[in-house]
Computed example of a mutant assay.
Amino acid sequence: MVSEGKPVYVHDDGKEVTFDAPATVAKIGQLNGEAKGHRERAEAAEGKLKAFEGIEDAEAARKALETVKNLKDGELVTAGKVEEIKAAAKKAAEDQVAAAAKASNEKIKELETKSTTLETALFTEKVGGAFSRSKFIADKLAVPGDMVQAMFGNRFKVENGKIIGVGADNQPIYSRSKAGEIADFDEALESMVDGYPQRDHILKGTGNQGDGARHPNGGGGGKDLSGLSPAARITAARASGQAKRQ
C-alpha cells in the first residue's frame, strides 16, 4: 500500500503507519552520530580512568593530590631560601662562639688577677713573716728584718707553699747540713749574707759595735762606720761596693 507516495506499514494489530524512509534514514544517521559521540566519550573516559585504577575514594585522592601540591610549593619556597637560612645559622653560631670566647677570656683575666693578688698576698705573708721571725737575723745581724728584706727579699720565692731561696744563678740554694734538700729560710739567708761583699757591716760582732776597728774585708773604703745607724751603714756599704767596682 502507498499513501502520498510513501509506503504504508501495517503493524500486527492492523494499524497502518505511513513509513517516511528519508526521515527514518536521517534519524538513524542522527542516532548513529550521537551513538558514536557517546562511544568516543566513553572510550576517552575509560582511558582516563585507567590512570586511577585501584583508587576507590576519589575525594580522598583529590585531597591527597592537593596536599602533595602544597608540599611541593613549600619545598620550592624553602629551596629558594636555603642559602639565606645557612648564612643566618652560620652567623648565629659565630656570634655564640664569639660571645662565649669573650666571656671566657674575661673570666680568665679575672682569675689571673685574683691569682696574682693571692700570690702577692701569700708572698708578703710567707716571706715577710719569715724575715720578721728569722732567728738568724735576730742573732747574727745588726740590722732589722725589714732592711734585710729590702736587701735580699727578691732572692726568695714561694713554690707550693714553701719558701725557696735562690742564688745569684737563680737556682735554688741547697742545704749544707741536709744533703739533697732545699735549704730552709735561715740557712738560705745565711748563704746570701755570706756572699754579700759588705757583710761585715750588717753582721754582729765584726767591729760594728763601736770598737773603731777597720777591717780589710769591710766596706766603706776603710772608714769606721760604727757610729752610723743600721740604715746608714747599708747605704755606705753599697756606695763603697759600687766605688770598688768602678
Rank of each mutant, 00 (worst) to 15 (best):
K81W: 00
D224H: 08
G222T: 06
A35N: 03
G47K: 15
A99L: 13
K15A: 10
I173R: 03
G212Q: 06
N154Q: 11
R238I: 08
A58W: 04
E75N: 07
G205H: 05
K90I: 09
E84N: 10
S177R: 13
K50I: 06
K140H: 12
L141S: 01
N70C: 04
P197E: 09
V82A: 07
F19R: 15
K178C: 06
A93K: 10
P172W: 01
S240P: 03
K162I: 12
G5C: 12
T206N: 06
M192V: 06
A237K: 00
A99V: 05
G29T: 08
V148M: 10
A142F: 03
A100W: 02
A232D: 15
G241D: 11
E106I: 05
T116D: 10
M151V: 10
K162A: 11
D13M: 08
Q30N: 09
I173P: 02
F131E: 00
A35Q: 06
L71C: 13
A88I: 02
Q209H: 08
G161V: 01
V68D: 08
R238G: 06
P172L: 02
A42Q: 10
Q96S: 05
A188S: 15
F19N: 11
E75R: 15
K86A: 12
S177P: 01
D139M: 05
I85W: 03
E125R: 15
R133H: 07
M192N: 10
E110A: 15
E159Q: 07
T206E: 06
A23I: 05
S115P: 02
V82L: 15
V148N: 00
K135M: 11
T24I: 11
K15F: 04
A168G: 07
E83R: 10
K223E: 12
A237N: 02
G33S: 14
D211T: 11
G212Y: 05
V25L: 13
R176I: 12
E4R: 05
A150T: 09
A51Y: 03
A99F: 04
A232F: 04
G5S: 14
V77F: 05
